[in-house]
Design a protein around this nucleic acid. Sequence first.
DNA 1: GTCAGGGCTATTGTTGAACAATCGATACGG
DNA 2: CCGTATCGATTGTTCAACAATAGCCCTGAC
Lengths: 222, 222
Amino acid sequence: MKKQSLEDRRESLGETVTAGIRRLLVEGEFTPGQRLSEIALCERLGVSRNTLREAFRTLAHEGLVTHQPHRGVFVTRPDAASIVEIYRLRRFIECRALSEAWPSHPAVKEMRTAVEDARTYRERQDWLAVGTANMAFHGAIVALGDSARLDDFFRQVLAELRLAFGLMSDKEWLHAPYVEMNQQVLETFEKGDTKAAVALLEQYLAQSERIVLAAWERQGAS
Amino acid sequence: MKKQSLEDRRESLGETVTAGIRRLLVEGEFTPGQRLSEIALCERLGVSRNTLREAFRTLAHEGLVTHQPHRGVFVTRPDAASIVEIYRLRRFIECRALSEAWPSHPAVKEMRTAVEDARTYRERQDWLAVGTANMAFHGAIVALGDSARLDDFFRQVLAELRLAFGLMSDKEWLHAPYVEMNQQVLETFEKGDTKAAVALLEQYLAQSERIVLAAWERQGAS
DNA sequence: GTCAGGGCTATTGTTGAACAATCGATACGG
DNA sequence: CCGTATCGATTGTTCAACAATAGCCCTGAC
């Protein structure tokens, strides 16, 4: 099979495939717990098994996918403990990054962009995009900490959390309320009241955790 | 080529290879910046190129190795900015984990074990092992935070830092002083004076950063 | 002598096929 | 009903081939 030559891609095919599967996972194309057949995905993506397996390794390392030897790779199904752990991590990382942030840090602009994007998509009722903008907002908060390694790690954790969102049907209820809260956090922070902004963020995260956990208990038994 | 049947390994060959290369890397078998030829490593490890490439993907994701398309994978050569960033991360993570720790957390036992191991190896002048025990000590501190994801991330960051150690020749000077300091941190913490323990740890990390940075400037120009 | 250009070579990127190893299910016998 | 042997499907791993690229050397013009 020939493909390579559709575009002059700078990244290798393997990386393209990894990014593609990651997108499918985060957007909820697959159901948590579902097995990802090598052969089926090979054909769907038009790549060889070896290339696909390289992508699987990366995704497994990111936690989006779980590898069980001789059984296959499965879409990670977050359990309640994981959700709790991830929110604890988020409070740990985000709150600290925000509280120590330099007020005119470049990432503040990214925060504002994310808020505006979220408002736009909310009007169109594009909840998937609203969720992505939400992630970008919180990613920007972590970026205030000026650590590329922490940024990557945080993105990864957020992507894993988003897998749990796939268990829920009501996307509007899941994402819409936070558009306003994000904006409130941002405005409070820009006003110079860092302490209050952190408190808002903490409250935000606690509420989000409750909602996600509740939905998990209803839908994702086991 | 047959191999597989020497032992009844539970983990796949690919994971064995990944772990093996990782060990070689952190033990300083390779020089930072050195190119790792696929063919040479294939033969040395007795695996196929595909399997080796899967391992490379994982290690690149961990940051121990840098992939340059169509040029090969190179042992990551930490720059000064990376060293500074990693120490900032360490202060961020370790100090917070220690300050919020439950005094009788199981990981405290691991901390003590690591301190004792370090003393043992120091007597034998086995500085590589002392360094490993040191890493275990700090890994145990992070484990106080009860987050498996953070533990993994931290281990990864520490492994990357250890690459920089490979640039230095005087291993004794690099590792020996911290055996006592680790013990001091542990004893202060066990005495119940968490605040003082955190202060000690912070001072420890600052000193370590200075030493590593100084050595980097001397040896690893560019 | 130096620099630009062009091809050569070694290496990486990717594929497809082959076989071994293992898991799960099914069928069989007690 | 339960244990066990067998079988099929899937994963694990290797190999060989070819495409694509980067770096090198060699040539030639100025």
